[in-house]
Design a binder for these strands. Structure first.
Length: 285
DNA sequence: AATGGGCCCAACCGCGACTTT
DNA sequence: TAAAGTCGCGGTTGGGCCCAT
């Protein structure tokens, strides 16, 4: 933006060899960086820049890799569903784009931030007559509880403080960080049979509507990959299973679903029943 | 066809956090 | 323990594209 891509001679060449380049990346620079990282990995970013023969800062290389070259990035535009996820997560987490991005595989914090700033925020500003923070769009879909409230609602017994600390910006605990987003299911017999009682992510023993109202037929219909190894990941449950011991919980969140072909089915079911995204609060009475 | 304005998005900047020495 | 180096994050900028006039 400040500068046009470097000319061929300019990349790693002798011209202004001492000077750090800025601005848009040229295809050749991309190639060098990509090749370097895929072949040798990253020790430190500054060394990557040097070893790849790029007159770029390590910081710049990192940014380019993270936001553009990484092979696992999604190229397609952000979907409606992803947008709802962003809105929901932004409402509960605030502008912690890296945390939000971590829950959306294939999306970068920069991408999400840009999307938010250029589209969602603007739309919300319009719909709320210029009000700050509160989302008109979110209001249409039902307000989420505040971060702490959400933690209180969604955390299983003994986990409230962990989720709460996550919501308030303390170090995210390893497990509950992905936990509060979606519903869970008790593991019944394992092996493909699925559980026999859906429970709220809150960990209450009362069944919620999660799988009973999934609109997709029997529970096993939506138990994607549920112990049967249908997805080649034997033993991985796409429902999170709670059996009273956090160590035995199998977790499921948006990114799991998005990665799984049948995840759409489940999300649609949730969608129909207002069980995900900004309606999360509705699913837990 | 020209042009002005709005929008999108890649990339930079500054700063705090973390790691290494 | 302190200093230096590095990383990662969120905010911001500005070039280029698109569209309306």
């Amino acid at each position: 933006m400040v500068e046009k891509p470097a000319s061929q001679a300019d990349v790693g060449g002798e011209v202004e060899a001492h000077k750090e380049r800025k601005g848009l990346w040229s295809p050749e620079e991309d190639e060098r960086l990509y090749t370097r990282i895929t072949r040798h990995g990253v020790s430190t970013w500054s060394s990557v820049a040097q070893l790849a023969g790029l007159r770029r800062s390590g910081k710049s290389c990192r940014l380019r890799w993270m936001n553009y070259l990484r092979p696992d990035l999604k190229k397609e535009p952000i979907s409606k569903r992803e947008e709802e996820t962003i809105i929901s997560l932004q409402k509960s987490l605030g502008n912690r784009w890296s945390v939000i991005a971590a829950k959306m595989p294939g999306r970068t914090d920069n991408e999400i931030k840009n999307y938010w700033n250029s589209r969602i925020r603007k739309r919300q500003t319009i719909s709320t007559g210029g009000g700050k923070g509160d989302s008109g769009l979110a209001k249409q879909q039902g307000d989420l509880p505040a971060a702490d409230d959400k933690a209180a609602v969604l955390a299983p017994p003994g986990e409230k403080e962990l989720v709460s600390s996550m919501a308030t910006g303390a170090a995210a605990p390893p497990v509950p960080a992905r936990f509060p987003l979606f519903a869970c299911q008790l593991l019944g017999g394992g092996g493909g049979g699925g559980g026999d009682a859906a429970i709220a992510a809150a960990g209450t023993t009362e069944s919620t509507t999660t799988h009973e109202n999934n609109g997709a037929g029997s529970e096993s219909d939506v138990s994607v990959g549920n112990g049967g190894g249908q997805d080649g990941r034997e033993g991985h449950y796409y429902y999170c299973a709670v059996d009273g011991d956090i160590d035995m919980v199998h977790l499921m969140s948006f990114d799991d679903l998005l990665e799984y072909p049948a995840g759409d089915l489940l999300m649609d079911a949730w969608d129909q029943n207002g069980l995900y995204s900004t309606n999360t609060g509705n699913s837990v009475d």
